[in-house]
Design a protein around this nucleic acid. Structure first.
Length: 752
DNA sequence: AAATCCGCGTTTTTT
DNA sequence: ACGCGGATTT
């Protein structure tokens, strides 16, 4: 045995319930853990890893655990490290794992080197836009983001199905020339794939696809990994897509020890290719698995759990499951109706202050929302109320221009063939190189199948460019050449060197526009982060033990670029600071907080309009059902307090629109809501959240309003909960009112 | 080539 | 409301 006798960990399995114990100590063969929210599955996985290592003498480095996000990976690693002194388990996301494998293996595919660049979604769209332009396609008709989404769909389905026709038919505006459109898509896809290869670049989906390809074409390599990993575990299995399923299968192909964990009710990524059949068909894909259901919830009060349960039972496409909890009833759920998004944000800030007064810490509170733009109003209200907060996701930091520029320089150092990076920074800071001369260069490059960087060093190409542009290109070429040795440098040193060479002063001065953004501070932050990264790498080298299979991190500028390409801001979230956390519902998966706010419970927001319109798939309700699961995920993050808010009006695209409460609100049993009084107010409560037949009004009717007095109806719009009337009140002017709330009384001809 | 202005679409959700 | 791309100046 490569490892010494296993050290037993006293109390490792203490406190596990029967089902958890069964899962944690399952030995060989497939294992399916169906885990309800808050049922302690992370606990099971971490204990299981520790149990295998100590009780079954499995070397940690022979364990592979896949999580959905980098943050989840980090947390799991920390929890395992607390249990186990020995290190070396691979705990990462599919993407990070694949990047790591490709760094070592990609050269067998031919044409790629280990210095490959990773293109994120915006790099991808940038490249597509360039290709579409070069091919003279109208980029408003063929939007790069749309083509990109379609290509992504194709890759995630691993070419099993070709979505060409259906995609265009559902997303495109006119279906008349669908055939032509899909032809263009296919053609652009070919150009895109060729460009990626030429540029030694992979997009996010390629990370998975190329590993699959390596495994497929080189069974020896596949077997090497599959033999190495004695146990493979995949968390959030309900959100895996087809490529990920295939990779799981390949990695488990030698030992067959695959443990997956998930909850079909929390599947919220169908839109990016997640295939819920992976978990539903697990028994078929990996025959005779042990199946363990974790149904005891340790997180939420029964009030919260009942609400979640009642809601999710409205979904038709699900397997029934019985969640229960020994926690008490706790407080009722609070529903707050607000005037608009600012009122909503203020209300949330106020409620948080109330919770803090009751003795809760800020970090015990989270606010969730459906779409990122809702973050703005919340942020400003919290700032005004002096409530400390942090925001998860939104990619904010890495989206900043100065950060992207600096990273583009670094990518160019690592991979001079990266044309997207080249275009981005060739004129940063300005060297007099404009579109015209760039086009000349690009044309030259295209004619001879060169990358832009190669063309830029050709005297022949330069001779066709005159004046300032020429000297600019020359000096840029010289700059890139000077930076070349940094390829093998530590990340922090490399970035500092780059900044020095490009002329930080001039660069900053040029970017210094009105906005007063502290770009210098952002750049400093990235450099500081790079130094911290280098330190971490040094640490990992110290504990590395190649003889036992414990590898050090890749490190250097190369490793740094790889890591930041896959890391989002979500991962930078600290939970040791006492701040309220703001995030989208999607980011909330896997987390828990004593108090949770979910904002924007309105039709067309949650469920989102796009999901309502969705008619693809066999089930016309499937879009709605995914939204319902998303809300379910949100609710089940809450331990004790749950607040749901909705606004009557909300700013959209710079205009206020009337909003009706989400249908999901009416799916929560009213007796779980605060303010519910069965005797007197039942009608009113129901009235607020259910679509009822509207009292009929007509244009010209005389009406009376509690506040505005008497008036005349000018206009009627909308129906059901969205019905509204534009009324002219002599005393207050013209108002548009939601009939559902306005309680308008119709007056007869005598004015009574 | 760079600066300024206008019009348009934009908002799901993330690795 | 805002950022981007395209058009129009300087």
């Amino acid at each position: 045995m490569p490892r010494g006798p296993a050290t037993r960990i006293p109390g490792l399995l203490d406190g596990l319930n029967a089902a958890q114990l069964e899962a944690a100590t399952h030995e060989n063969g497939p294992l399916l853990i169906l885990a309800g929210p808050g049922s302690g599955k992370t606990r099971v996985i971490t204990r299981r890893i520790a149990w295998l290592c100590t009780e079954r003498a499995v070397d940690p480095w022979r364990i592979l655990a896949i999580t959905f996000t980098n943050k989840a990976a980090r947390e799991m690693r920390e929890r395992v490290e607390k249990l186990l002194p020995a290190q070396g388990a691979w705990i990462s996301t599919f993407h990070a794992m694949c990047a790591r494998i490709l760094r070592r293996e990609i050269e067998v595919l031919g044409g790629y080197t280990r210095d490959f660049t990773i293109y994120d979604t915006s790099d991808r769209n940038q490249l597509l836009k360039q290709l579409l332009k070069d091919a003279n396609y109208d980029t408003t008709r063929f939007k790069p983001s749309m083509v990109g989404a379609w290509i992504s769909d194709w890759k995630n389905g691993l070419s099993e199905r070709d979505p060409a026709v259906t995609f265009v038919a559902t997303e495109g505006e006119d279906t008349a020339d669908t055939g032509i459109e899909s032809e263009v898509f296919v053609r652009v896809r070919g150009m895109y794939e060729a460009a990626l290869k030429k540029q030694n670049a992979l997009d996010f989906d390629d990370l998975l696809v190329k590993v699959h390809q390596v495994f497929d074409e080189h069974p020896g390599i596949r077997d090497a990994y599959a033999s190495r990993f004695l146990h493979v575990m995949v968390d959030e299995y309900q959100d895996t897509n087809h490529v990920q399923y295939r990779l799981t299968k390949a990695l488990a192909s030698v030992h067959g020890n695959v443990a997956v964990c998930g909850d079909p009710d929390q599947s919220i990524y169908a839109w990016r290719g997640a295939d819920i059949r992976n978990i539903l068909d697990f028994e078929h894909d990996f025959p005779n698995p042990r199946i363990v259901k974790l149904e005891q919830n340790y997180r939420s009060t029964t009030t919260i759990l009942k609400a979640a349960q009642a809601l999710i039972e409205k979904n038709t496409e699900r397997k029934p499951k019985d969640l229960w909890s020994e926690k008490g009833e706790g407080r009722k759920i609070v529903v707050l109706q607000c005037a608009d998004e600012n009122d909503e944000a203020r209300e949330i800030a106020q409620q948080i202050q109330g919770l803090v007064r009751e003795g809760r810490a800020h970090k015990d509170v989270a606010v969730f929302y459906r779409v990122n733009f809702m973050q703005r109003a919340l942020e400003s209200a919290l700032r005004m109320a002096r409530v400390p907060y942090q925001i998860v996701g939104g990619q904010e930091f890495y989206e900043r221009r100065e950060i992207r520029d600096l990273i583009a320089f670094a990518k160019l150092v690592m991979n001079p063939s990266d044309d997207v990076a080249f275009r981005r920074v060739v004129n940063v800071p300005s060297r007099g190189i404009g579109d015209k001369s760039l086009e000349v260069l690009a044309q030259f490059a295209a004619d001879r199948r060169l990358t832009l960087a190669q063309a830029a060093t050709s005297t022949e190409a330069l001779s066709s460019i005159r004046g300032r542009a020429r000297s600019g290109l020359e000096s840029f070429g010289a700059l890139v050449a000077r930076l070349e040795p940094l390829k093998e440098a530590a990340a922090g040193i490399a970035l500092e060197q780059i900044l020095e060479e490009i002329g930080l002063e001039k660069w900053m001065a040029e970017m210094d526009d009105d906005t007063g953004v502290d770009r210098q501070a952002n750049v400093d932050e990235l450099v500081t982060f790079a130094h911290a990264y280098d330190a971490m790498v040094e640490d990992s080298k110290r504990v590395a033990n190649p003889a036992q299979g414990v590898e050090a991190l890749e490190g250097g500028l190369r490793g740094f670029l790889q890591d930041i390409a896959l890391v989002s801001d979500t991962d930078a979230m600290k939970d040791d600071t006492d701040k309220v956390t703001l995030m989208t519902l999607h980011s909330a998966k896997g987390l828990e907080y004593p108090a949770v706010f979910i904002a924007g419970l309105e039709e067309e927001l949650l469920p989102h309009a796009r999901a309502i319109a969705e008619t693809t798939g066999s089930n016309p309700e499937s879009g709605i059902e995914e939204e319902r699961r998303l809300f379910y995920v949100g609710i089940t993050r809450a331990e004790e307090r749950l607040f749901l808010t909705h606004a009557q009006q909300r700013m959209f695209f710079g205009e206020y629109g009337f909003r009706s409460p989400s249908r999901f609100l009416s799916e929560i049993p009213p007796q779980l809501l605060e303010g519910y009084e069965p005797d007197r107010e039942e009608d009113e409560m129901l009235g607020a959240y259910e679509t009822k037949a509207e009292e009929s009004f007509a244009v010209g009717d005389r009406v009376e309003h509690d506040h505005f007095g008497r008036g005349t109806i000018d206009r009627l719009q909308g129906a059901g909960v969205n019905a509204r009337a534009t009324v002219h009140f002599p005393a207050h002017g013209t108002k548009t009112l939601l009939l559902q709330y306005a309680k308008l009384k119709r007056l007869n001809k005598e004015g009574r």
